[in-house]
Amino acid sequence: MALTLDDVTRIAHLARIEISAAEAAGTLAQLNDIFGMIERLSRVDTSGIEPMSHPLGGTQRLREDRVTETDMREPNMRNAPEKQDGLFLVPRVIE
């Protein structure tokens, strides 16, 4: 069940985090330790058990279909790294 360097590179890409070869190697060892600890779960018999997504259960509350938000563009965009004409700017998006 051990992870490989390829796994680390693949996951880092999925998570969009740049990772150098050296970092990947170090991370690999740590991740394998952690997964070694997690392995114990696979030996537990959970047949017939419902997974628990929410500790207290319950069902989703519904909100009335009503416009409640006003134009808060200025404060909401206050922390934007780059913006112009009310748009967030990013390096060119290629389809």
């Binding site: 909100r63 409640t68 938000e69 134009d71 909401n76 009310g86 748009l87």
Partner: peptide, 21 residues
């Protein structure tokens, strides 16, 4: 009238990001 998970308007054609809560 409003978005699926927020109370912003869904009206088409507004100025950029004025309907982004």
């Amino acid at each position: 009238k409003s978005k699926i998970f927020s109370g912003s308007s869904t009206r088409f054609g507004a100025l950029p990001n004025v309907q982004a809560s």
